[in-house]
Design a protein around this nucleic acid. Sequence first.
DNA 1: TGTACATCAGTGAACGCGCGTTCACTGATGTAC
DNA 2: TGTACATCAGTGAACGCGCGTTCACTGATGTAC
Lengths: 203, 203
Amino acid sequence: MATVIATVPYHHGDLHEALSAEAFEQVRAKGGDAVSLRAVAQSVGVSASAAYHHFPDKTALMQEVGHRGSLELDRRTLLAADAVRGRGRRAATERLRACGAAYIGFAQDEPHLFRHTFGPDCAGSALPGEKTKDSASYRTLGRCLDDLDRLGLLGAPRAGLDLMIWSAVHGFASLLIEGIVPAEATGPLMATMVSVLVRPPTR
Amino acid sequence: MATVIATVPYHHGDLHEALSAEAFEQVRAKGGDAVSLRAVAQSVGVSASAAYHHFPDKTALMQEVGHRGSLELDRRTLLAADAVRGRGRRAATERLRACGAAYIGFAQDEPHLFRHTFGPDCAGSALPGEKTKDSASYRTLGRCLDDLDRLGLLGAPRAGLDLMIWSAVHGFASLLIEGIVPAEATGPLMATMVSVLVRPPTR
DNA sequence: TGTACATCAGTGAACGCGCGTTCACTGATGTAC
DNA sequence: TGTACATCAGTGAACGCGCGTTCACTGATGTAC
């Protein structure tokens, strides 16, 4: 019977990824302000200075966390929208509602991540080659509006609605996680949005 | 001719107020995260420990800053709404637009203050006897909607519109100050809001 | 196949910093007699 | 009117802390010959 001695290898393998993932997890759990580069390095089992071989400074690491956060938000909204099948009025309406609810749900489930992702340390400076403006979650909301538009259900001109609904959903999510607005208001808010945007059925 | 020796009095007069005002100013200029109790005390010309005769801890001081911030926001929105005179369709519509624009303008002019006021250090815990929910700026927006409603101009049921418009304005302001959405979009956003909420003139 | 060597990814000690908060203290104030 | 004294609002030194970042270094890796 051979004795196997598990050895921690001197070279990590993919320390960049490991640091980024650990930082993400710590931001998720404690919030961006409470995360230090030292703590992240320690959790990964590496000296703090090792991080400087992979990131120019702490800011860069934190920005990558923000990027991961927005990917997660994108994933959730897309998933919610795709889960609603059908091409009719009912489906298109429900899709918009579900997409908005998913956005808000992300903030509710992961408030630290949400704050960090849209906070001053991340938001302004998107990752190279990306403008946050055309984030996937924004585009997903837009596609829900397209569906409604195609069915002739929008009560107002299509242009500008993207931004309005994104603003409303984002603002509500922000107010919600700070306790300024109650979680129970989420359903009613999305209902109001729909009732304002979607023309009532002609019968 | 008498020589007047200006003496800094040992007792300050109103150190609570002075600290609060100085903290407000520093948050305004540098952002909440960059403000330390020590720096505030020093600016006022007092030892850091003196602050503890007036505030239980730093958090309490910062919360008071947040309160001042929301008062300023209230002041601006109210001022903007009141500046629009008249009782007709035109005035009511313009009043809503102006009120929303003032909210956004506050964020734009004082991003640090805006972030701090609605940030996790302040928002949740309102000052005793106050629920942030019925903040004056929220109520001012609501009164603009009331005006429109009274004229029969709302295209959707009145209930819920307050929250929707507040969310939209707040969300847009948040996205704006993080550079995610351009300042030029402010006008179009408010135009979209109006076009969505206000029934077109029957002619 | 074996060896010298350049390269890269780690280490750990140190620098320099500012922070919130506590503590024993002292100077000023105003009130009771 | 004068004085003793309790009260309150200051002081400044110290505690204990964790932080981001730099630096000279060393261990592992892989490639050229």
